Amino acid sequence: MSDVAPEGTDPDELPETDDSETEKAAQQTPPGLPLRVEDVEKRFGGVTALDGATFSVEEGSITGLIGPNGAGKSTMFDCITGVHTPDAGSIRFHGEELIGKEPYQIAQDGLVRTFQIARELEEMTVLENLMLAPKGQIGESAWRSVAPVARRGVVKQEEQIREDVWETLEFFEIDHLAGEYAGNLSGGQRKLLEMARALMTDPEMVLLDEPLAGVNPTLEEKLLDRVHDLREQGYTFLFVEHDMEVIMENCEHIIVMHQGKVLAEGDADEISENEQVIEAYLGEDLGE
């Protein structure tokens, strides 16, 4: 459509365009794509870790993020979750810009992560680790300790949290470890605890950073089963993992990064047959 005013029309009488509203509409994340990463760049000195990476994650999906060592996967996770601030680009969750927010604010927005090395509170029990996780806890104070009504509110909330914790422990099949100190758990048990703790924050989307690293096959299967169960409940996952067989068998959409850029996207068949991906991995097994 032409922007030229009809002949005889005073340009000053034409309706004004609200540039702010136009810009806002352009920035909105499309429905069904809660996370949108656009042209993200991140440099560390003279090293470019992310070089204009762009991708989206579909709601209710298990999306794999893969790439050779040094491709920028962990840096991307750090930028999404507020650990690092990108030098350029945009990261939006349900249309709201995340860049500039602190990690705890992003978690409060409903986007949480796990780490390659589990970060449990070692000198607290498994139960206590989960009790600390929920958002919006009233907490204790000198005033509440002497105000019966306020005290009842604290007790009621704590009872509800404890009930939720036990349900989560049972869901992850680690309820038998409730009284065990987190520092005494095996690597696989720590990964289960970390995911359970992430779920206790009531997130919408979970970023899993190599959740199977150091996990034995039995616990690996259990953890993957939990991920699929949670996806069926409506959770969304973005999944970094080096085991290509796991990615190909469990992710309906796969994003491949290489040298800080998105090299390819598609399902398992499309990725495993992509010549650029094969070349980037220098012949590594892609699950075929």
Rank of each mutant, 00 (worst) to 15 (best):
Gly45Phe: 00
Gly45Tyr: 01
Gly45Asn: 00
Gly45Ile: 00
Gly45Met: 00
Gly46Ile: 04
Gly46Glu: 08
Gly46Leu: 02
Val47Gly: 02
Val47Lys: 08
Val47Trp: 03
Thr48Ser: 14
Thr48Ile: 14
Thr48Asn: 10
Thr48Gly: 00
Ala49Asn: 06
Leu50Pro: 05
Leu50Ala: 10
Leu50Asn: 11
Leu50Lys: 11
Leu50Met: 09
Leu50Gln: 09
Asp51His: 06
Asp51Gly: 01
Asp51Arg: 01
Asp51Phe: 02
Asp51Lys: 01
Gly52Glu: 10
Gly52Cys: 06
Gly52Ile: 04
Gly52Met: 05
Ala53His: 06
Ala53Leu: 13
Phe55Ser: 09
Ser56Arg: 13
Ser56His: 14
Ser56Gln: 15
Val57His: 12
Val57Tyr: 10
Val57Gly: 12
Val57Ile: 14
Val57Met: 07
Glu58Thr: 15
Glu58Asn: 13
Glu59Trp: 04
Gly60Glu: 12
Ser61His: 13
Ser61Trp: 09
Ser61Gly: 11
Ser61Glu: 14
Ile62Asn: 06
Ile62Arg: 03
Gly64Glu: 08
Gly64Ala: 05
Leu65Met: 14
Ile66Phe: 08
Gly67Glu: 05
Gly67Ala: 02
Gly67Trp: 03
Pro68Asn: 03
Asn69Glu: 12
Asn69Gln: 11
Asn69Pro: 10
Asn69Arg: 11
Gly70Cys: 09
Gly70Trp: 12
Gly70Val: 09
Ala71Val: 05
Ala71Gln: 04
Ala71Gly: 06
Ala71Trp: 05
Gly72Pro: 02
Gly72His: 01
Gly72Ser: 00
Gly72Asn: 03
Lys73Ile: 06
Lys73Asn: 09
Met76Ile: 06
Met76Ser: 07
Met76Tyr: 06
Met76Leu: 14
Phe77Tyr: 05
Phe77Leu: 01
Phe77Pro: 09
Asp78Met: 03
Asp78Ile: 00
Asp78Phe: 09
Asp78Glu: 11
Cys79Leu: 01
Cys79Asp: 07
Ile80His: 07
Ile80Leu: 01
Thr81Gln: 07
Gly82Asp: 07
Gly82Ile: 07
Gly82Val: 08
Gly82Met: 07
Val83Trp: 08
Val83Cys: 08
Val83Asn: 10
His84Asp: 12
Thr85Asp: 14
Thr85Met: 13
Pro86Ser: 02
Pro86Met: 03
